[in-house]
Structure formats: C-alpha cells, structure tokens
Amino acid sequence: MSDVLAVDAIGLTKTYGALTAVDRLNLQVSQGEVYGVLGPNGAGKTTFLRMLFGLIRPDSGALRVLGRSWTADGVRALDGVAGFVESPKFYPNLSGRKNLQLLAGLDGGTSPSKIDEVLETVDLRDRSRDKVGGYSFGMRQRLGVAAALLRDPKLLVLDEPANGLDPAGIRDMRALVKRLATSGLTVLLSSHDMAEVEEICDDVTIMRSGAVVYHGSIATLRSRAPEQAHELHTTDDEHAALLAAARGLEVSRLSPGLAVRGPQAEIDALVAGIVADGVALRGLARRETPLEALFFMLTEPDLDLAGAAR
C-alpha cells in the first residue's frame, strides 16, 4: 500500500465573516481505509468536503489529496478522486444510463461495458433505461455512486449518502459502501449518524462547530463510551428507581418511566428484583447505543473541546 496519504489536511480553516465553519482541522486518511467525518448539521463537514473538491478555498492551512494540492497542481489535484457533496443531481427526463453516458463524456467517454459494470455494482442495471425522474431518492443516491465509479477512483468521497433515505434505502446504501470498501477503495464518508459510521468506518473524526472533538479508531471510541442505557416502565417507578440506585445504576426520570444506565448484568438483576418485589414490568427497551450516547456527549455545546479532543 502506498505511503502517500489519501487525504492530508493540516490546520485547515475556513471562515465566513464572524462564523468559523472549519477551525484548524487536522485530518489524515490512509489509502485503503474507510474514514468517517461525523458531526451534527453545521459541524463543518460539508465545508471541509467542498475544500477537498476545490469548490471553495481555505483561508489558511494546507490540504493534499493523494499527494497533490490545488495550489501546486490545480485541477489535477482531483486525479483519482470522485464522489459528491450533498445530493447528486441528474437530468430527470433522461434515463440513468444516458445520464452516465453524458457524465462519462466530460471525462473523454467510456465503454458501454464500463457503464454496465457500475450499474451492476449499485444494483441499478435493471432500471438503467428508466427515466431518473421516476427513481426513488435512494436510487438517485446510488446512481451518484455509479457516476463516481466511472472515474475508477482511488478515493471515493460521499457526503451523507444515506441522508433522507427510508430504512430499506439506508440498508442498501450501507451494504453498497461496505462492498466498495472490501475492494481496497479508500472511502471518505461524512455523516451525522453514529450508527452508520460505526457499521462502516475504521476511523473517525468527530466535529462540532468547525472544530475537532475526537480523532481516532472506532475501537478506541467504543472504549470511551458509557454503559448502555435502557428505558424502563413499571407499575411503581418510584420503587424501581430506589432499586436501581441501590445497585449503583445511573437513574434519570422520564415522563413517564425511567432511564437507567449501567452494566447489562446489573440491568438484568434490576429487572429480576423489580419482579421479585411484586412490581409489574410494563416495558424495557434500549435507548441510544453507547456510541450514540458518547456522540451526543461530545457534540453538546457546553463540552470543553480541549479536554475532549484526542
């Protein structure tokens, strides 16, 4: 594998008047990995991707993509790079295949077999002659991936690829990205969904208000996550809260019910104790996953950024 980084951002900063959209971002993506840039809306993810594609220029800092920069190499900085920022756009009155043919023409054209190949990869070959205006949102997102793959990229950049999709579309998009990752393609994925990043990515940068609050592996992030939280409903929540506190579980009031957080074995013992005391259990459900809980903690406005970042 090449020692040249797929993405190397150092001190990258972009401001709009008094707003700092990206604040001294350092981010390195090795070739062959699936890297997530995670954060709530307004965190600076899309601004960073716009700088990567040369759509806007940083105010300060340096950015190299596959060893090249816009400053030194101009448009050649995008050699080997493909993807989309926000949702891909197509001609709605043309078929998916015709849209791909037109896009391929901008790069000098391609063979029909290559178009068949990318349509097969994104599971759209059977719908390739249908007008894009009749495609679902998820199908248009996958057609965007197909358009990117026409360039045979070394680095595929996807901005919120599952955003706005229904559950089936989310499942299909995640499966597609995972298939692409197994081929050795470098994938840089932005998202506001912790579950999506956890399922797909090797490493992650979490952003908040333009700044980094976490850099590192998903495995390390998991080690920092709090215990699993459960939502609990009983016929006597006051008694259940006393039992939970006695076991050292973290308890907070809901309306109605309780939220309890702690080791799974203690949650199981709590449920057994509630039933043994003659209190009926009306409901027990997992709340956000531990990583989702940590994501919310990291991106809360009152968090000390300097203490959270790694």
Score class of each variant (00 low, 15 high):
Glu120Cys: 11
Ala147Phe: 01
Asp203Pro: 13
Asp130Val: 02
Ser217Gln: 08
Asp193Trp: 06
Val197Tyr: 12
Tyr214Cys: 00
Leu106Phe: 14
Ala168Cys: 10
Arg151Ser: 13
Thr182Cys: 12
Gly169Thr: 13
Ser183Thr: 12
Val118Ile: 05
Arg142Tyr: 02
Asp123Met: 06
Thr110Glu: 09
Ala211His: 09
Leu188Gln: 13
Ala219Arg: 06
Arg179Pro: 00
Asp159Asn: 09
Tyr135Glu: 08
Val212Thr: 05
Ala147Arg: 13
Ser223Gln: 12
Thr121Arg: 03
Gly108Ala: 04
Val187Phe: 10
Ile218Gln: 05
Gly138Gln: 04
Val204Thr: 07
Leu165Ala: 00
Leu180Pro: 09
Arg140Pro: 11
Gly108Asp: 05
Val157Trp: 06
Leu150Pro: 01
Met194Arg: 13
Arg224Ser: 12
Ala219Met: 00
Thr186Ala: 01
Arg129Thr: 10
Glu160Met: 05
Leu106Ala: 11
Met207Thr: 02
Ser136Cys: 09
His230Leu: 15
Ala147Met: 00
Thr182His: 15
Ile115Cys: 07
Arg142Met: 06
Glu227Cys: 14
Val177Gln: 13
Gly216Met: 02
Phe137Gly: 04
Phe137Leu: 15
Ala229Ile: 01
Asp130Glu: 15
Gly164Pro: 10
Gly133Met: 04
Arg125Trp: 07
Lys131Trp: 14
Leu189Asn: 11
Asp202Gln: 09
Glu196Trp: 06
Leu188Ile: 15
Gln141Val: 04
Leu143His: 07
Val145Leu: 10
Phe137Trp: 09
Gly134Gln: 13
Arg171Glu: 12
Gly108Arg: 00
Leu180Phe: 08
Ala175Phe: 05
Ile115Met: 09
Pro167Cys: 06
Ile218Pro: 09
Val204Ser: 07
Asp172Gln: 13
Leu221Ile: 06
